[in-house]
């Protein structure tokens, strides 16, 4: 009996495609963000409110994933930015191949900020790299504040946690400080923001975070290669 070492990622094919996408985004100075949450936490609402507040001249695009329907794409297309729906037909997450296919035909200079709204699911999207610069996890105050401990994978891999629906805080027994503390137990140093996609509270902070990411990304892309 021989033991042959393999030492490769299980999802190496997805990782290969994601690396190609990441290189493409870097070359075109596109900041790509992968939004992940449970169903109903407010990913689409966060994007709606964000697109509504962005200057129409900004070069922003959205890919939105769902198991069925193009409802989200129709909701998001109202703001005039290019939007495409990815309907997975049952698959519980987006993968790099779906992103690659969905980008075909878009002009390379059409956008420098790409939002990917993943399928509502806190588990499966965690494993699939989409070539994004950062994952953003959206949690809402109608969920449990211990969710970061129950679903550590996504909080571990995200760069930012957006706590949504803070307009409901007076009506629900949810402690936002405890939720953030739980998230930081899983991921020390995780950035966190609080917003209401209904009232717009906290959006200045979210838009400032986006601006900072875009600036940092553009600088990184223009920096000369080391060596």
């Amino acid at each position: 009996m021989d033991r042959v070492p393999l030492e490769q990622k299980v999802l190496s094919e997805n990782d290969r495609l994601a690396a190609a996408l990441r290189a493409r985004f870097a070359e075109r100075r596109v900041l790509c963000l992968n939004l992940i949450s449970s169903p109903g936490a407010g990913k689409t609402s966060l994007l709606e409110k964000t697109l509504e507040r962005l200057d129409p001249g900004e070069r922003v695009a959205v890919l939105t994933g769902d198991i069925q329907t193009d409802n989200d794409a129709r909701r998001l297309a109202r703001f005039g930015f290019p939007v495409r729906q990815i309907t997975t037909g049952g698959t519980c997450h987006l993968d790099a191949r779906m992103i690659e296919r969905s980008l075909t035909g878009w002009r390379p200079d059409a956008f420098d900020l790409l939002f990917i709204e993943n399928v509502g699911n806190l588990v499966c999207p965690t494993s699939y790299d989409l070539g994004e610069a950062a994952k953003v996890v959206v949690l809402s105050v109608t969920e449990g504040e211990d969710k970061p401990l129950k679903y550590p994978g996504i909080f571990h891999r995200s760069s930012l946690m957006v706590l949504n629906k803070i307009d409901l805080l007076p009506y629900v027994p949810f402690d936002p400080d405890a939720a953030e503390a739980n998230a930081r137990r899983v991921h020390p140093g995780l950035e966190a923001l609080r917003v209401s996609t209904l009232t717009g509270e906290g959006f200045d902070g979210w838009l400032a975070w986006l601006r900072a990411q875009r600036e940092r990304h553009a600088q990184a892309a223009t920096a000369p290669l080391a060596g």
Binding site: R3, V4, P5, L6, L11
Partner: peptide
């Protein structure tokens, strides 16, 4: 963090 998110093929045993 230096470990805990592995999803890797380690080895095959072949006869």
């Amino acid at each position: 963090c230096v470990g805990g998110d592995e999803l890797e093929l380690a080895y095959l045993e072949v006869d």
